[in-house]
Amino acid sequence: MWKSVVAGAVLLCSATAVSQEITADDVIRKAMDNYRGLTSHGQMSMTIHRQDWQREMAMNTWTEGDKRTLVRVTAPAKDAGNGTLSVDGNMWTYSPKVNRVIKVPASMMSQNWMGSDFSNKDVSKDTDIIDQYQHQLVGNYEQDGHHVFVIQSIPHEEAAVVWGKEVLHIRDDWVILEHQFWDQDDTRVKTLRTLEIREMDGRNVATVIRMGKEDATDEWTEVRTTLVDFDIELPENLFTLSNLRNPR
């Protein structure tokens, strides 16, 4: 019995030791850097699952720094060419059917993106969470030989955020295992779970992630990353409206 108490104490000490070395802000920062890199280019497929139907699409994504993201749909043929550009918290969407670029108003950022369970804000992969939230390390555990940090992020008073809090489980190789979204009544609304992690371009990447609403278990959206390159040279005009309209 003493053994287990001692072991527990040691474990506790080591846990606090680790958490003292690194702050919650650092963990979030590193996790964001890990999945965005300085620049990145990825190919992914998205599966939207509903009770009575399912739909798949494929897309290319590019990111640069914290605030620039471009998503372009490549399949199915009916939707190919549709794109979404996000720069500094602003978002535009382009559709070849009407050959027009439309700015997505701020009031629509929490609306779903093209019928999926991801919001426009989720798709812009904005790193607002870094500076608009107060982060706190609320726990940690071991999993598959990795240390996992549990971080609770509460938005600042003045932040324009719909969530009451977000809880992230981040592994010590900076892969986000779970990202929970809680509303202001402290109920969990949706959760982004990592289902598969693989090494790609020298980093561990969450290759299969699934966003699911808490109140409807048969409705989810899965994003499968088939290819990703980090820290590559991107054309200068990639994140511009004219490129959104006329891709080169």
């Binding site: 139907w53 739909r55 199915p76 939707d79 559709s95 059917k97 009407v98 027009r100 093209m114």
Partner: peptide, 14 residues
């Protein structure tokens, strides 16, 4: 200009 999602989940625009 309108942009939304169609019944089959596809991009709708007009």
């Amino acid at each position: 200009t309108f942009i939304g999602s169609g019944r089959d989940g596809s991009f709708a625009a007009g």
